[in-house]
Design a protein around this nucleic acid. Structure first.
Lengths: 208, 208, 208, 208
DNA sequence: AATGAATGAGATTTCATTCAT
DNA sequence: AATGAATGAAATCTCATTCAT
């Protein structure tokens, strides 16, 4: 009898192998950098032959796409409920930053890998390959901020720019800090960041 | 008779060639991405043979280091006077952001190249090579912010985190926005960013 | 109890599977070309796993040999009676060409596959593998032509060269024409070819 | 001073190297078969590194195209004058066959290589790559034959089929014979072929 | 000072084949 | 009887670097 399959026509062992390979790819990229994470390196970490990867993934791009897809799923899973749990807009923003930090702690190598991929992967003719990957715009910070302004809970900043800044803070700033000092206490770092944003988005005091 | 040399034992033509190559490298990286900016691509843009690059630079790493060094010099040249021209700390911070934007407009490809390099370049064994490059910490934002707090002109944020955020904002945030929309009006974008930071660093209102 | 076997120690299901695989191999080679007809492609067409092929055939070479053997059998089955049905040598030659055309129509993919194999298959050290395959010399055109000359029914051509030409005409010429135009009316094409050969082999007129 | 260049911007040594590589590729294909003629094999025969080939040719396809282009040029150079030298149509046809044989003797491996390439090279999706190569239709046998019929010098055969047959005879038939017996005397073989065609195309005797 | 030519290491990918179940 | 999974060899191509001129 053929092994049980799930949606997508993949067997359980197949899925497990793919997950293992994706994890090893993330570790390899996070630790050795995008350019050094060759198929050989990834395979060596997984303790399998290069061609096993080819057996499970059509090509390297598919592997990277699955990595990013997995990471985004984990991120959404973690951050979604944390945002939904807050009614107050300013607490939502704080939750966004601290939850992002928690995600980076839990899925550290996967996060670092995604950031590497986001910056490195290019099409043969030069431009970023990540446009075809579901990375940003999942959270809709703009929407949250705009509503906060309408209800008078937030100040009068440029919504688009603030959303960009929030995203960069949650991803680039913390990543760079973590890279520069792998022993960094990310939780308190996130707390400090959240405090800064809390003031930045608050309604301005009357400045006479 | 040997040609005149300057400090470092290089002739003037040598220096000119190096500058030309560095500029072409910056263009290549900015336009085609780090991974596609091979020595061949750079040489082609400069209209010279690949080996000419090898003649003037020990290896690719040295070329990239000179590129970054040059960029940092240009950056310091532009931003230094603009910061010095302001006495008020809050205006200094605004100047930091708007001057950074101006730098990105004037030295666009060089800036984009440095950001690419900062994320991509790794040593053979894996870790970022930029740590060994004189990129950050040249401006001493920390110093400025700390003094502002001491004099009571600024609020009570975490200085290190705020400095990181400022740097990421000035470089990553604006770069990503520019990448996403090459026609972006960077000057007004920087203005909006500056406004946000102005509130973020200001002394907190009494929060009853 | 073990399943019934036939000569060669194979069971009936075994034989059926082998035949199915051979047919799919023929289709694959005919449609996608020799180089693209990998074991994976063949297995996919048969709707079975690659390893099933390995289970039934020692290696790819054995599969191809069986394909050619099968094709030759079909060819002989079809062409033999058609030749035997003719007493007159010149009608035998015409029958040879038209029967070959009929064979190509009926067993189109198998024929195209054999032609591909005949040209492509090589031993690891380089030489054509077809020499070891039972392709040519099954029909004994030479014998027929020689007897025709002895009885004065045919002209005075070089028997070996004429046989070669006939075989090439029946296989290569028609195959190439069919490839170039898949909608070609092979029956009338064969008729035209037959007419040409009829004159070529006829006793020369007195050339004063 | 830079080395002298000729049309196409190539230096003389470049041209010589390309010619050498093309010749070695032809030898490799002719001797070991298309499938075994890897870049490594070709480089080994030329006594150079694999990458030298990459230096002179963009990819393998370009190398093969140049090989075919060269072969066709040689063929046209040899066969053109020989056809032009004959006024009589029937002698033209004989010249076509014998000149083709001479070509095969002089440029043996190149010819064998082209035949291999013509049959083997396929695009990734399956169909022959030779459509983009200038192989056939250079001689316009149809034109010659048609004129011969108009002037009453030739019989009443199907022109298109006869041209196909002539081409197959000149290329496939002789190639297969040569392959089967590398010591074959091609000149007399061609002579026998020519005799056969001479009768095949001659005006039919009145067959009452 | 400059260059054309050459090199070797390494990357990705394909493929026939094998093995445990 | 059949299969999913794994393997290792080999193929093509890219690239930074070196060398003789």
């Amino acid at each position: 009898m053929s092994p049980r399959t799930v949606a997508g026509g993949r067997t359980f062992t197949d899925i497990a192998r793919r997950a293992q390979i994706v994890q090893c790819a993330a570790d390899a990229i996070a630790e050795t950098g995008y350019a050094n994470a060759s198929m050989a390196e990834i395979a060596a970490r997984a303790g399998i032959a290069k061609s096993v990867i080819s057996y499970h993934f059509a090509d390297k791009n598919e592997l990277l796409q699955e990595l990013v897809r997995t990471a985004v799923t984990r991120y959404i899973e973690l951050i979604g409920p944390r945002l939904d749990a807050e009614d107050d807009v300013r607490r939502k923003i704080r939750a966004y930053i601290t939850a992002s930090a928690d995600y980076m702690v839990v899925h550290r190598s996967m996060h670092l890998a995604v950031v590497e991929i986001a910056f490195h992967a290019t099409t043969p003719d030069g431009r970023p390959r990540l446009d075809s990957m579901p990375l940003n715009a999942q959270e809709n910070l703009e929407e949250i901020l705009r509503r906060g302004q309408e209800f008078g809970e937030l100040g009068d900043f440029d919504v688009r720019v603030m959303a960009d800044l929030l995203r960069t803070a949650a991803h680039q700033t913390m990543t760079l800090a973590l890279r520069a000092d792998p022993a960094l206490d990310l939780t308190s770092y996130a707390s400090a960041l959240a405090a800064i944003f809390d003031q930045a988005i608050s309604p301005q005091p009357s400045t006479p």
